[in-house]
Design a protein around this nucleic acid. Structure first.
Length: 882
RNA sequence: AGGCGUGUAGCUCAGGGGGAGAGCACUACCUUGACACGGUAGGGGUCAAGAGUUCAAAUCUCUUCACGCCUACCA
């Protein structure tokens, strides 16, 4: 067997992946039998690069996909990318700026052409990078949200919803980004706590002396003030309702109105009303018949009504106004105030609430159905706690603003008529107005929110609106794996659209994972310089170590703190597996997989033990995968391979392999290969590369590991006798080793332990495996003694539930020290024994505790008593000698 | 302002009514023929605090403290 000491992941990963893909192992075939298991990838931004969030997401998906593929399910993992409207447009605009160009200079068609070029150039980056992770996507089905097919789906959905009255156009107060020059949905506004100030401004009465003082954080909006409002029952101001006050600086008279919305406690209890720039003021304005006049234009500059401040940027104007107000005695006070401001989620510019005519989705009925599907269990979140978050949003949802004043995206299929003003919304581009037949129609320039097309992803990617074989076979999908940050943006909206257009929810299970943070728990960001590149990690540690780390850290519902130490640790695990396999393979002799015949009671005790343990492991691994318990999955595999397989099993078989009994060695070789094949198959979904490489070296292993059947657990495979026998040998071994370490007996000095096993079966094990016991414990000889036999003098005792181990230590042991040690141990045992006896003496305990618990406690009491007895007898012996 | 979540070993976290666990780090010893990316043996915790429920609480309930995150139109 030609194997180096280390797995060369760099070379092997590329070679193996290329082989898998070239062989078509990732491709789904709807005509094949098998339960469908389907995942659609959360489409990354087309111009993006693979970051840690993707790496986690794709790894968790690939683990499930590989598991189900090995189980024989009809498995599809559909990859693709998102056009990411604002984000991509911004990126390309920035690139243009470097050339001294603007999108306006290029014109709409020219600009869109440039974005497509950009997409062709960089769009495949992220898909290529997926391959480095080992992602087994069906790339023959790769989709893009602006594909011809997906665009048709978008259009069909838009027109249908419009026909049903679920899409409408209206003048509303929306969130406007003055930098991106587009409307944003409520979700696309993030709230940041910022230090600001509360300015107290005097509004003089138009008809006499005195003034009302208004507290505001945004003095620059006063030019849009249409009223000043007070609470109708506020004694201080009630009498002024109906009078008029003058807007500072421009002295435009506005009425004082009364409305219970006003909070008497805040500021002065007087509120300025700016219907065009504040959602609440807009409502107030509607209620009181006030006009809404924009004080701030789309680009964030003040409008002509701002007098001499017109044309200034909003924040610049604020700074300029303050001294002027002060000079006129109208700025009476300034207080520091921390308050939340809304910023654009793409460029972090402070958004301007603005009155604007936009397109909306009427969400009430769609959201109700989306919530119902989770409430009645058609779709379940894992972990379940995220369902609360999901409901909280859907139950309080507002209409969704879907129009964006961008160029990159799906242009809205609506035509405005210059003759009658009517709207024509159709599946095919119209030649004339649907209302007046005029040919003077013009297409609405707006595009749709990126998330509108993302919402259709689970069925648009399968060919809808056509009735395709894929759609019939693979919708609804099985699971969705994503981060909690896009539950509202994406998950909820897919639920709404999937239910509305396919009548069934788009997935059965939504797996929500945590977000990847750095080792200190900080969000990774370029500005902090703590971003880790997944590709660099893969280069350094290998995809398997990286994937195993992500799997182990994917504990449900918290931050994932990724540190190099952790990844390096799992790199050592890969190395351990490699070397353990090397031992097995280099000692396989002429054995071939599958030729050893069925395992059974004729096998050696270690082989029976390993088979039994592997059976338990298999059951665990399947359960963890079925329950999406990734962290437990990783832990089970790690401990089995390292602690049970390497530290015990391989040490137990080594003497057999090198021993004189050739028949026994031959049998062990077969069993060893079989066990390795099971381990590799169980590990494969998490660590596909190293396992595939090792599999290829197993004599008799046929075909790719990634298509080999996943092991099944079998109750009948459990072997209690073997587990008890090996457990006993472990106890003996550990006891002797511990004594040796405690008394600093040099490794070269052989010991002569005395082992008292009460159980006959264990005594037989001891006899049968005596050479093994000698080797494991570093002994020259040992004596198997019966109960009541004379104990050796100058020895250290370890008491077990099943008996005692005595290690004679003449010359090494300080008897007084040993006596002190035993006294301490006896005291500990006595304390535990007393606690156990107290419980068993308590009638309430006996009456109320379940029978099996009480039974355990009785056994515990007996064990403790026996062990304490042994320790005390030993103590008496020692004291007699002192 | 509401909602969700988290406080367990030095660090990162698992456990979740019935004997406190893992990885890393730490200590001692070991170049044993798969691996020193290794082996063996160890040290280390009032399970945030208080009260309650229970035969039994790290685990359930309440309160307090601390720290996250999400949602939100109080100027």
């Amino acid at each position: 067997m030609d194997m180096g000491k280390n797995f060369d992941h760099g070379e092997a990963e590329r070679r193996i992946y290329e082989w898998w893909e070239r062989s078509g192992f990732f491709r789904a075939d709807p005509e094949k039998p098998g339960e469908p298991f389907v995942i659609v990838i959360p489409p990354p931004n087309v111009t993006g690069n693979l970051h840690m969030g993707h790496a986690l997401d794709e790894t968790l998906q690939d683990i499930l996909i590989r598991y189900h593929r090995m189980r024989g399910d009809n498995t599809l993992w559909l990859p693709g990318t998102d056009h990411a409207g604002i984000a991509t447009q911004n990126v390309v605009e920035t690139a243009l700026a470097a050339e001294g160009l603007t999108r306006q200079a290029l014109g709409r068609a020219g600009f869109i052409e440039r974005v497509w070029q950009w997409k062709e150039k960089y769009g495949s980056n992220i898909v290529r990078q997926l391959r480095r992770l080992g992602a087994s996507c069906d790339f023959s089905r790769e989709r893009f949200t602006m594909d011809e097919g997906l665009s048709r789906a978008v259009r069909e959905v838009f027109v249908s919803l419009h026909e049903e009255g679920l899409i409408y156009r209206a003048l509303h107060l929306i969130n406007w980004c003055p930098r991106c020059l587009t409307a944003l949905a409520d979700l696309e506004v993030e709230h940041e706590e910022r230090r600001g100030a509360l300015y107290y401004l005097g509004y003089r009465f138009a008809d006499g002396e005195g003034a009302l003082t208004v507290a505001t954080t945004r003095p620059e909006t006063i030019f849009g003030d249409m009223a000043v409002a007070v609470h109708p029952e506020d004694e201080r101001y009630r009498g002024h309702i109906g009078r008029r006050v003058l807007v500072p600086l421009i002295n435009r008279p506005v009425p004082v109105i009364g409305d219970a919305y006003v909070d008497r406690e805040f500021g002065t209890g007087v509120l300025k009303v700016t219907p065009a720039h504040d959602p609440n003021d807009f409502k107030l304005g509607q209620a009181h018949g006030l006009e809404a006049v924009r004080a701030i234009e789309e680009d964030g500059r003040l409008s002509p009504i701002a007098g001499r401040y017109a044309g200034q940027d909003r924040f610049e104007a604020r700074r300029a106004m303050l001294p002027d107000l002060e000079a006129q005695g109208l700025l009476t006070r300034t207080e520091a105030l921390n308050h939340a401001v809304g910023v654009c989620y793409r460029c972090r510019t402070v958004v301007e609430p603005s009155l604007s005519r936009q397109w909306f989705v009427r969400t009430a009925s769609l959201a109700a159905e989306a919530a119902r599907a989770v409430r009645d269990g058609r779709t379940a979140f894992v972990p379940k706690t995220w369902e609360k978050t999901y409901f909280a949003w859907l139950d309080n949802i507002r209409d969704w603003c879907i129009s964006r004043q961008l160029w990159w995206g799906h242009q809205i299929p609506a035509w405005h008529c210059a003759e009658c003003g009517g709207l024509t919304v159709t599946r095919e581009d119209p030649a004339a107005c649907a209302h007046c037949r005029s040919g003077r129609i013009e297409r609405d320039p707006d595009v749709l929110d990126t998330w509108f097309s993302s919402a259709l992803w689970p069925f648009s990617t399968l060919g809808w609106p056509d009735k395709t074989r894929d759609l019939a076979r693979y919708y609804p999908t099985s699971v969705l794996v994503t981060g909690f940050d896009i539950i509202f943006f994406w998950v909820a909206r897919m639920m709404m659209m999937g239910l509305h257009f396919q009548r069934r929810p788009p997935f059965g299970t939504v797996i929500i994972h945590a977000l990847v943070k750095d080792a200190e728990g900080r969000k990774m960001s370029k500005s902090k310089g703590n971003v880790k590149d997944p590709l660099e990690i893969i280069d350094r540690y290998g995809a398997d170590a990286f994937r195993f780390t992500l799997c182990a850290l994917a504990g449900q519902g918290r931050d994932i703190r990724l540190s190099d130490e952790r990844i390096a640790g799992y790199g050592r695990f890969v190395n351990k597996l490699w070397n353990a396999s090397r031992l097995v393979l280099t000692n396989a002799g002429r054995a071939r997989l599958g030729e050893a015949g069925p395992a059974g009671p004729a096998d050696s005790l270690p082989d029976r033990w390993l088979a039994s343990r592997l059976n338990r492991l298999t059951a665990q691994v399947r359960r963890h995968l079925d329950e999406f318990a990734y962290d437990h999955l990783a832990e089970s595999l790690y401990h089995f391979v390292w602690d049970e397989f390497c530290d015990w099993y391989l040490e137990l078989v080594k003497p057999v392999l090198h021993g004189p009994d050739e028949a026994a060695a031959e049998a062990a070789r077969g069993r060893m290969l079989a066990a390795l094949s099971v381990i590799l198959r169980l590990l494969h979904p998490v660590m596909p590369f190293v396992t595939e490489e090792l599999w290829s070296k197993i004599p008799g292993a046929a075909g790719p590991l990634m298509l080999a059947p996943f092991p099944a657990a079998d109750e009948a495979g459990l072997d209690a006798e073997a587990e008890a026998g090996i457990g006993f040998l472990m106890d003996v071994t550990r006891a002797v080793r511990s004594v040796r370490a405690d008394f600093r007996v040099p490794p070269a000095s052989l010991l002569t332990p005395v082992i008292l096993a009460g159980d006959q079966a264990l005594t037989r094990v001891l006899a049968e495996y005596s050479p093994l016991v000698l080797k494991l414990t570093g002994s020259a000889a040992f004596e198997a003694a019966g109960p009541g036999q004379v104990k050796p003098r100058e020895a250290s005792l370890t008491a077990f539930p099943w008996g005692e181990v005595w290690v004679p230590l003449a010359g090494h042991i300080d008897m007084a020290e040993e006596a002190r040690r035993l006294e301490k141990e006896a005291a500990g045992l006595a304390r535990d024994l007393e606690a156990a006896r107290a419980k068993l003496a308590n009638p309430e305990y006996l009456g109320k505790a379940p029978e099996d618990i009480v039974e355990d406690m009785r056994r515990r009491e007996a064990d403790l008593a026996a062990r304490r007895g042994a320790v005390e007898r030993s103590l008496a012996l020692l004291k007699g000698m002192l």
